[in-house]
Amino acid sequence: MKISHGNLRFLAFVLYLFQILRHNQLMIEIVPLPLQRRKARASLSNAAGRFDMARAAVDDGWGSLEDSGDAAVPIKIETDIRMEQARTLISYNKSPDLPFDRSINTYRGCEHGCIYCFARPSHAYLGLSPGLDFETRLIARPNAAEVLRRELSQPRYKVAPMAIGTNTDPYQPCERDLGLTRACLEVLRDFSHPVAIVTKGTLVERDIDVLAALATRGLVRVGVSVTTLDPDLSRRMEPRAPSPARRLATIRRLSDAGIPVRIMTSPIVPGLTDHELEALLAAGAEAGADAASWIMLRLPREVSELWQEWLAEHVPLRAEKVMARLREMHGGRDYDPRWGLRMRGEGPYAEVIANRFKAACKRLGLIQKSPVLRCDLFTKPAQVGDQLALF
């Protein structure tokens, strides 16, 4: 095959860009931002993602940067929400670690800013940083409900429980104004489709009317994540999430409305929150939760470095112990992604946590495996132009 000089020049240029990208990814220097410029943000840095070139702040002559001593940093860190027209919404998985095979996410990124969030690396696929970008540069899908309705209406669609909140929180602050999660819930209600929700957001209370209607037919369960009962620690780890006490109040309100709810003591942080396990479960049971679950802290890809930066600033005297415990459960690594091990680790410490959890649930009457949601009620509502049934 004959290759023209133009094609050769193009290939050489692509190779040159690849070498630059590879070099920059290896040479990225993470410069922590000053604390006063990170108010209510968990990440200390905003390093380029693994698919992005290294970035540097540039002074545009309009006072957009200021000298912090070691590096020039942005004056403000505000939340930016951009709109994305989704072409598809339902994501499918075959993970043996998950109790569901499909999920929907109305937002990319999460303003709650939990420093330990395992979803942070997904922002790198967008050319954004898993650090501060994940907390401050969000993407919303305004046509989510429309796309969901279309996908559920496909002739080949087969019903199974839908998970919401598996990557980023469906009830983060921007949902108050955009209402994308509620719109999707209304579609699922119209189709009598089973749904499981995971959240830290108290805004879920706004949708109690829809959730209660689903609950009366065995079509919904809600999981509320409470990581710690210490409000100071929570504010530092999860800077824009509701306080632990407020999340427990949400469990109570959902339970009082007849909506099945479980307390999720996730993630358990060894050497930092593990001593609270029994107290967390007791608080959840007192608030009305009927079930419970737990997951050990996970540090995939960029999360490990972000987490260790956070430890060094907020709990430096415990940092070594926390990481030692995690590595002990993952064969000396910060994280082991293998099926069956990534959620809880292995070894003596992991077994102790599992036994403590099991014993506490038994004592408190909390179930560990929730009842199966009903799938037999699924129906496709009539659309404009459909022929109506006679009976």
Rank of each mutant, 00 (worst) to 15 (best):
R235G: 13
E205I: 06
I263W: 06
P260C: 08
I208Q: 13
R206P: 05
R235M: 08
I164F: 09
R252G: 03
V222E: 02
I251Y: 11
L254N: 14
D190Q: 04
T181R: 15
R141I: 09
Q172M: 05
L254R: 09
D207T: 02
I208M: 04
P142A: 14
A245P: 04
L180E: 14
R262W: 09
A249Q: 13
R247Y: 08
E278I: 01
E146C: 05
G223M: 13
V147L: 15
S192E: 09
R156W: 10
R235T: 06
Q172R: 07
G201D: 03
L152W: 08
T216D: 01
D274T: 01
P231F: 09
R189G: 00
D230M: 07
M264R: 14
I251L: 09
A145P: 08
G179C: 10
R246L: 13
P194T: 01
D230Y: 14
P267E: 02
N143I: 12
H193N: 09
R182M: 03
A257N: 11
A215W: 00
A196H: 10
T250W: 07
P155Q: 11
C174R: 07
E175W: 09
E238L: 06
R150S: 15
E276P: 12
V198E: 12
V195N: 00
V159D: 00
K200Y: 07
R221W: 11
T199P: 10
R240S: 07
G218K: 00
F191C: 04
T202F: 02
R247S: 06
T168A: 08
T273C: 07
R262M: 14
M162F: 04
H193K: 04
L272H: 03
L203Q: 12
I197L: 05
R189D: 02
V159S: 06
L188W: 02
L185S: 15
F191G: 01
R235D: 04
A213C: 06
E276D: 06
P161W: 09
R206D: 13
C174S: 14
L188F: 11
D256Q: 13
P267G: 01
L185N: 11
R217A: 01
V261I: 08
L211E: 10
H193Y: 11
G218T: 00
V222F: 01
N167Y: 15
V210R: 01
P173M: 08
K200G: 11
